[in-house]
Design a binder for these strands. Structure first.
Lengths: 223, 223
DNA sequence: TAGATTGTTAATCGATTAACAATC
DNA sequence: TAGATTGTTAATCGATTAACAATC
């Protein structure tokens, strides 16, 4: 019960997909069991951390051998709620939207982009891979009829806030935002960013730190 | 000195791009000063946190009024190392690679994708927006000649590890990985993922938590 | 001046890590 | 059995938040 309220730590949630990918690979290779030690080694984590993470799924292992791979996979998928496929609409059929619509990996997370919408009338009627593109005007009707509850935003920054508000108005409860803009929405709407700037900022900071440390330790490239 | 070794906290680094976007917008609107309170309000953060973050840039404010916007922008850009443009090569000219090559926002982070590389010979000789596509064989030569030190990986998961190793072999020191695969590389190589699965996992977890909480508090959609 | 905002020091909170007994 | 690995409890670490004096 306490678990429901606070839930699994976000850092743990973020590591789950990595475990999942590796476990699925092991399963394909015909393996049946794996130890936390091995997972840690392969993913550059500490064994204790892997054990703590796994304990969040409720799965128990056997001392000396480890965990049953198929059980772990099932438990992680269930913990993330990826066992029930969720339909999503995509807003924005530009280059990024197009790449997202065609991305095949979503299937394994239980996410299905069922339709795309764009203001550009020329794009309407076309398809992004398997995903049909409709005019933005038909968004509300589509969402209501098909009970979609996730919206993927891939429009230019200037339009993002407006589109997000439109989605909320249409009854969408969760928004996955790829536009470089921080959205201001009611608290009960779940928003998750995938922000290239944020990711690159971390890369930049790490590079800067590395350079600083290299210089401190007197490392040189050539001499 | 201590600062160099440990550096600015990663969570702070992650918030910098959001500050930056907002500050630049304010500057365009002709504003000159802004308080931490206003920034916090607009970004859904707490004022104390914004002040702590700003203190990492070394910028000092004036009680009652706040901070000089242009100084803040300059300081954040400098802190991130975005004041010196960095050249990067892109590996993989598929849909995602194409979207990345055409993305205009990189300019404001000091990142410039100067060339793309692909194994598919049909793609070579074409352009992704302004970015020319070359055969993978010419990667090593290009990197050496042009002193590129960032590699952006946008290839299928199965090829990611191999491509990353190739990049390291070519002398690349930082890799921005968009492939859904955890890379195993020497410690001195800086790796940053932009993993859709991770981002979607967080969204999924938040949705699950929200549903659980809504049920706990007895909220209903319709009755 | 009065009051809002800054900057700093201390308290709290949450995640990671360490230590170690339990177990196969 | 011996030794590797699990699971739990406690210690550490780092970031967030609170409290409050300084300041314009």
């Amino acid at each position: 019960m306490e678990d429901l309220k606070r839930g699994i730590p976000i850092p743990t949630i973020k590591r789950f997909p990595s475990y999942l990918r590796l476990l699925r690979q092991y399963l394909e290779e015909g393996k049946e069991m794996v130890s936390a030690t091995t997972l840690a080694e392969e993913l550059g984590l500490k064994p204790i951390q892997v054990r703590k993470d796994i304990s969040c799924t409720g799965i128990e292992g056997k001392p000396k051998v480890g965990f049953i791979i198929s059980y772990l996979i099932e438990a992680i998928v269930h913990t993330l709620g990826w066992d029930n496929a969720t339909d999503a609409v995509l807003i924005g059929a530009g280059h990024l939207g197009s790449a997202l619509a065609r991305y095949e990996g979503f299937e394994s997370y239980g996410l299905k982009i069922v339709a795309a919408f764009d203001i550009d009338k020329d794009k309407c009627g076309t398809k992004l891979g398997e995903v049909p593109v409709f005019p933005l005007e038909s968004l509300k009707g589509y969402i209501k009829e098909n009970h979609v509850n996730i919206g993927v935003v891939a429009v230019p920054a200037i339009q993002a806030q407006g589109i997000a508000e439109l989605l909320v108005e249409c009854g969408i409860v969760a928004i996955w935002n790829f536009a470089p803009k921080d959205l201001k929405l009611p608290e009960n709407v779940v928003v998750q960013r995938t922000d290239l700037a944020t990711s690159f900022a971390v890369l930049s900071a790490k590079v800067k730190r590395k350079i600083a440390n290299d210089e401190l330790s007197g490392e040189v490239d050539e001499w």
